[in-house]
């Protein structure tokens, strides 16, 4: 599905990012339109996480432009939190607030950032906990939940902010195999509802069935960008072929 409408929701132009003298991102150009589902894959250390972390400015890029829904991320953006509100993020290690119950985890930012009342925040929180199918865990602390449950809570927490875009940074990499599917199911549902998503993941089944485009990164560059069928069946770059042969042979 290619849309040519108006401006893209996310536009990265010539983005470079350095950690000291190490160049983590090299001339990244990427456009994501509303409703698109992008899967980013590539070997470890290829810059996938850094790229999506630049989108909500958890990392600051050194050159180039990143424009989110018409707002450019710059040093001067004192309103970075307004952009972050539009961009939900799910982390590999869940990062729930350990000292708060599940429902409080979901309510906190709604009350502080979206300025909702306690009652409204709780209603929204319970709504999204139902959606990720764990409302009965609402009053527990994160440590009492399994990894898969914690990650579903983390997704619900991001959704409570009603974001335009969801970023997933290897959401299933820290999970036991038997609970990976419960998290992927939530992500598939989200995709079906038309959420704009960028997922860094090695779940190639998910990539094949959900992604509109797959981006392959290596050594800080976008090496290949193609729809799933083309990407898997007819990869162009040697590096992509090598990567695919490594992850798909087992």
């Amino acid at each position: 599905m290619t849309r040519t409408d108006a401006q893209p929701l996310i536009r990265m132009q010539g983005v470079n990012k350095f950690f000291g003298s190490f160049q983590a991102l090299k001339n990244i150009n990427l456009e994501v339109h509303r409703g698109e589902r992008i899967v980013v894959c590539g070997p470890s250390g290829s810059g996938k996480s850094t790229m999506i972390r630049c989108i909500n400015r958890l990392e600051e890029h050194n050159d180039g432009h990143i424009i989110i829904d018409g707002k450019e991320l710059t040093d001067q953006v004192n309103d970075i939190n307004a952009v972050r509100r539009e961009v939900g993020m799910v982390f590999q290690s869940f990062n729930l607030f350990p000292h708060m119950t599940i429902v409080k985890n979901l309510m906190l930012a709604q009350q502080l950032v979206r300025k909702l009342s306690k009652a409204e925040a709780r209603d929204t929180a319970m709504h999204y906990l139902e959606r990720v199918k764990i409302p009965e865990q609402a009053e527990k602390y994160p440590i009492a939940l399994s990894g898969g449950q914690q990650q579903r809570v983390a997704i619900a927490r991001a959704l409570c902010m009603k974001p335009e875009i969801m970023l997933f940074d290897e959401p299933t990499s820290a999970l036991d195999p038997e609970v990976i599917n419960e998290v992927l199911e939530v992500m598939v549902d989200l995709a079906k509802e038309g959420m704009t998503m960028i997922c860094v993941t090695h779940e190639m089944g998910f990539a094949r069935s959900v992604a509109d485009r797959i981006i392959f990164m290596d050594e800080g560059e976008i090496v290949e960008e193609a729809p799933p069928t083309e990407f898997f069946d007819n990869p162009k770059s040697e590096r992509t072929k090598k990567f695919l042969s490594q992850i798909l042979t087992h």
């Binding site: 958890l58 939190n81 307004a82 982390f91 607030f97 906190l108």
Partner: peptide
């Protein structure tokens, strides 16, 4: 970081 990502 989770707090930042939520806009806090």
């Amino acid at each position: 970081e989770a707090g930042s990502a939520l806009g806090m």
